[in-house]
Simulated scan of single mutants.
Amino acid sequence: MRETELYGPIKAFLEGQGWEVKAEIGAVDVMACREGDPPLIVELKVGFSLSLVYQALDRQVVTDLVYIAVPRKTGKAFQTALKNMKKLCRRLGLGLITVRMKDALVEVHCDPGPFKPRKIKAKKTRLLREFERRTGDPNVGGAARDGAVMTAYRQDAQACAVYLFEHGASKGSEIAKATGVTVATRLMRNNHYGWFECIERGVYGLTQTGAVAVEAMDSAEVLRP
């Protein structure tokens, strides 16, 4: 399809709200004026792209009422893209419009305006806790998250596993005291990696899987006092 196919539905939608609409005013795709309001600009594209966002940002030197408009598609990929673009537009103070081409339905997903992101305290607390608990800096920024990221939890599990490898089956309280992993007993009971086995109440040993994991560890991986 062509961008021009979006113009008719957008024009009709805006005129229905009392705007006078004209196309191709200077470098602007769609411009609308209404008494008492600043001019409104809509940039048309057949799909989401950074160039569309850059184009819309350039229009903000003219007016605060800047929208981007694209045809509404079906499918999960478009829904994900729409959700992400809506989030981006809100942060940039842009409006977002989609047009369902089969019946010319125009939907405004967000209007231009100032945006202040809502802080989520729980996420901040979780990140800070992980930062404080992690020993050293064992990862490389930008690495793919394929399960190989060293977390504080994995470091704790490694410390417990190394202790058991060196000392044999031991009480959870002894391991906690020796390694500094205060949650050692719970960690071994949950056994996320399959490294531990309960020998008797409160006493844990290392499984064959755990022994193999310890032997494969780089000595620099486990940094404990």
Results as ranks from 00 to 15, higher is better:
Val66Glu: 08
Arg100Glu: 14
Ala161Met: 04
Glu132His: 12
Pro112Val: 12
Glu215Ser: 11
Lys171Trp: 15
Asp29Tyr: 09
Ser219Cys: 02
Lys123Thr: 04
Lys119Phe: 05
Phe13Tyr: 14
Thr135Arg: 13
Met85His: 06
Arg126Ile: 02
Thr63Pro: 12
Glu174Asn: 10
Lys102Phe: 10
Ile120His: 11
Asn84Phe: 12
Ala81Lys: 15
Phe165Glu: 10
Thr4Ile: 13
Lys83Gln: 12
Leu14Glu: 02
Tyr7Leu: 13
Arg126Lys: 14
Ser173Val: 14
Ala169Glu: 08
Gly147Asn: 07
Leu96Lys: 02
Pro138His: 07
Val62Lys: 10
Gln60Lys: 15
Val99Pro: 03
Leu127Trp: 15
Lys11Gly: 04
Ala77Arg: 15
Lys116Cys: 10
Ala161Pro: 11
Ala213Leu: 08
Ala69Trp: 03
Ala216Met: 10
Gln155Met: 02
Lys87Thr: 08
Arg201Pro: 00
Ala157Leu: 08
Val162Phe: 01
Leu40Asp: 03
Val212Ile: 10
Ser49Asn: 15
Ala159Asp: 03
Trp195Ala: 01
Arg224Ala: 06
Lys73Cys: 04
Leu128Ala: 14
Arg129Glu: 06
Pro117Phe: 06
Ile199Val: 15
Val28Cys: 13
Lys177Thr: 09
Lys102Thr: 12
Gly95His: 01
Gly113Lys: 14
Tyr153Glu: 02
Lys86His: 07
Glu3Arg: 12
Val222Trp: 01
Tyr67Ala: 02
Phe131Met: 05
Lys11Leu: 08
Met1Ser: 11
Glu197Ile: 01
Glu5Cys: 05
Ala178Cys: 02
Glu197Arg: 14
Cys160Leu: 00
Gly26Leu: 11
Ile10Met: 08
Pro71Val: 03
Glu107Gln: 14
Lys116Val: 09
Glu174Gly: 08
Ala169Val: 05
Leu52Asp: 05
Gly95Leu: 07
Val149Pro: 08
Pro225Ala: 09
Glu20Gln: 15
Leu57Pro: 07
Leu223Val: 11
Leu88Gln: 02
Gly168Arg: 05
Ile10Pro: 04
Glu24Cys: 06
Asn139Val: 00
Pro38Ile: 09
Gly16Tyr: 00
Arg100Trp: 12
Glu24Tyr: 15
His167Ala: 06
Arg2Pro: 08
Lys11Cys: 09
Phe78Cys: 05
Gly136Phe: 05
Arg34Phe: 04
Gly210Cys: 07
Pro112Gly: 06
Asn139Arg: 13
Asp218Gln: 07
Gly180His: 00
Tyr67Ser: 04
Ile25His: 04
Lys171Phe: 14
Gly172Tyr: 00
Tyr204Cys: 08
Leu14Cys: 04
Leu6Asn: 07
Lys177His: 06
Ala184Lys: 01
Asp103Cys: 06
Ala32Gly: 07
Ala12Asn: 14
Pro138Gln: 10
Thr74Gly: 04
